[in-house]
Design a binder for these strands. Structure first.
Lengths: 240, 240
DNA sequence: AAGTGGTCTAGACCACGCG
DNA sequence: GCGTGGTCTAGACCACTTT
C-alpha cells in the first residue's frame, strides 16, 4: 500500500518514487508500470496527478506510453538522442569496448576545460580518469573526464557498470544527466592523441568539449573527447 | 469570440490555432498570450484543455510560461538548443552574415547525402542551394542544402527571411522543424571547400551531414556543412 | 468484455508578480 | 488585492489492446 508521505507537490513525490524504483531495477527495463488506476488507488490521488508524474518521466526518457497497454520502462538515453556520450558510445551499431587507460584518481583541474568552473569546483580538487573506446577492436574515441571531488567523492573506475560512468551514476548513485553544453572542433591530432588512437600525427580529429549537468546539485561532469571519425562518424538525432 | 470548430481533439485544434497566430505574427515574439481563463471563456473549454495545448507549445519551443505573469511568445529555437543550424548560425555571439553562393535551383540529388531518400524523394527532382556564413567578415561555414521539389516547390533564395531558410519556412509556409539526424566527421578540406572558406587545402574541417524532419509530411531538408572551427567552435546545448 | 491510456468537464485552492 | 499560472479533486466518456 501507499506508504509515501504526500505533501504539496504530490506528483513530484510520486514521480521521484517511481523514478527511484526504475533506477534501482524494481521496475525493470522492458516491464510495464502499474496502471494509472493502480497508482491512483495506491496513493489516494486522481488520474490528473499520476498522469502529470508519468508525463515527466516520459519527458525525462524513463518510460514510453502505449495506448491500451500501459507505461513501459525503457533504457534511458535511447530516447534522448542528443546525449553526446550516448551518441558516441551507445548509438553505434557496432561492438563497443571501453578500456580505462587512466584509472580514476584525485588530480588538479586541467586548464584544457573550456568552461567556467563554479566557485565550489575551483575550491575543490577533482577526480580524473581516461578511457578509450574501441569499435570492432580499433580505438576510435579517447575520452578524458573530470568532476568535482567535493560534489561526489572518488568513484573507482573498476566499479563502472559496463564501463559506463553514466550507468554507474544512475544505478549506484541515482544521479541522472539533465543537460549538456558542447563545443566541437576539427583539428590535427597531437602526438599523444595519435598514439592512443593509432593514427598518424596531424590526421584530422574531432575534438569535443562537453559539460554535463546532473540532477545532483553542484555536480557537473566535464569531458574532453578526441574522435577518429575516418571510419565511424559520430551520429546523433533528436525529435520533439 | 471563439469561431473555431472544436472536434474530438480540442486541445490540438486550439494548439494549432495559437501556433498559427504566433507564426504569422499575430501573437508577436515577446508579447504575452491571452490568459488561460481568457482562452477558456473564448473557446468554451476548461483549463485542463487549454493547459494541454499550451504545454505542447511549450515543448515545441514557441512559448515560455511565467508564473503570475503569463505565457510569453519566444523566438523558436532559442530553447531547442540542439538545432544544428541554430547551433551554427544562431547561437554564436558574433555578427553572422549569410551569403547565397549558389541560388536555389532545380537539380539532381547529390550522392554525397548519406541518408536514405524516401521513394517519393527519389522520384522527385530536388531543389539545391548553397550558402556561406561569415562571422566578423570571415567565411566559417559552407552549407549545401537540398529538398524535394515535389514536397515544397522552388523557394527563391532571394526571398529568404534574414538569409535563413528555416525562418522562411516558418513565417511564410508555417512549416516547423520537428527533429534531425546528424553525422559528424573531421576531415581535410578539399580544394573546393578550402577556396570557399579561404583556408589551406587539407586543413582539418568539421563535416556535418544532417537530415531535418519537418512538420510537413514528406518534406525533409538535407544539409551538407563544412565548418572551419579553428576560430569559432561549433557550440550547442540542451536541457531537459 | 475488461483493462489500459487519452481526452475533457467543472469545479477548488495555492503561489507568484505587480500595482 | 487581483490576475496569473500551478496543483489537485472527482468524476465522465472515448479509443485502443488484449482475452
Amino acid at each position: 500500500m501507499g506508504d509515501k508521505k504526500l505533501e504539496k507537490h504530490k506528483y513530484r513525490t510520486i514521480r521521484d518514487y517511481i523514478k527511484k524504483r526504475i533506477q534501482t531495477g524494481k521496475y525493470p527495463i522492458g516491464s510495464y508500470l502499474p496502471s494509472e488506476n493502480d497508482f491512483c488507488n495506491r496513493f489516494g490521488i486522481t488520474r490528473t496527478t499520476i498522469r502529470k508524474a508519468l508525463d515527466e518521466l516520459l519527458k525525462e526518457g524513463f518510460i514510453v506510453k502505449e495506448q491500451g497497454k500501459g507505461s513501459k520502462v525503457i533504457e534511458r538515453g535511447k530516447s534522448l538522442g542528443l546525449l553526446t556520450v550516448k551518441g558516441i558510445s551507445g548509438s553505434i551499431d557496432y561492438e563497443v569496448e571501453t578500456i580505462v587507460t587512466e584509472p580514476s584518481r584525485i588530480a588538479r583541474w586541467d586548464p584544457i576545460i573550456p568552461f567556467t568552473l563554479t566557485n565550489e569546483e575551483q575550491k575543490s580538487q577533482c577526480v580524473y580518469f581516461q578511457r578509450v573506446r574501441n569499435i570492432n577492436g580499433h580505438p576510435v574515441v579517447l575520452e578524458n573526464n573530470w568532476y568535482s571531488l567535493n560534489a561526489l567523492g572518488l568513484i573507482e573506475s573498476d566499479e563502472f557498470v559496463d564501463g559506463s560512468f553514466f550507468k554507474t551514476l544512475s544505478r549506484k548513485h541515482l544521479i541522472e544527466i539533465m543537460g549538456a553544453e558542447q563545443e566541437l572542433r576539427s583539428k590535427p591530432a597531437s602526438i599523444d592523441v595519435a598514439k592512443k588512437l593509432n593514427i598518424l600525427e596531424g590526421a584530422p580529429i574531432l575534438h569535443i568539449s562537453v559539460r554535463f549537468r546532473t540532477s545532483k546539485p553542484g555536480l557537473n561532469l566535464y569531458g574532453d573527447l578526441y574522435c577518429d571519425t575516418s571510419e565511424y562518424p559520430i551520429r546523433n538525432s533528436y525529435f520533439l
